[in-house]
Amino acid sequence: MACFLVPAAEAVVTTIITKIIKAKEKEEKVKISFSDGIVEETTKIKFSTKLGWLNKLLWGGSALLAFEHIWHGEVVPFFPFLTAVKNGETADMLAEMESAGVTMAVLVTAIWVCMLIVSNIIEKRALREVKLTKEAL
């Protein structure tokens, strides 16, 4: 009915947060060893960039789901834009947003959190490898 509106609303909020964080963040340089053994100085991925991953997932998913809703005639290009509201099924629509919509937003965010954890592990491992190389020398 209109489940995509929940992740879309989350996308709006996270995009604003990203803009605020981006303005305050500073670059952090680290030395990383790459798979070919070369140690190079690189810039550490900023948190705003990582938050950008969540934005892209939410915006991308919401955009394609919005298209699906247009396809099924659940979203129309004229007021009130949602067929459920026009047909007096607002309560059903809100219930669907509460169940499917919230679950979508939560699952996307949970997957993003997993991505953060994995990227942190990879970053820490790369930094540890540089330390070990320095100690060996």
């Binding site: 892209k56 991308g60 998913g61 919401s62 169940s99 679950t103 979508m104 699952l107 996307v108």
Partner: peptide, 17 residues
């Protein structure tokens, strides 16, 4: 990648429901 993964996750939830 972001577009299709975002949509896939959301449709997966739809499929579960």
């Amino acid at each position: 990648c972001w577009l299709y993964w975002g949509a896939s996750i959301m449709w997966f939830v739809d499929a579960i429901f």
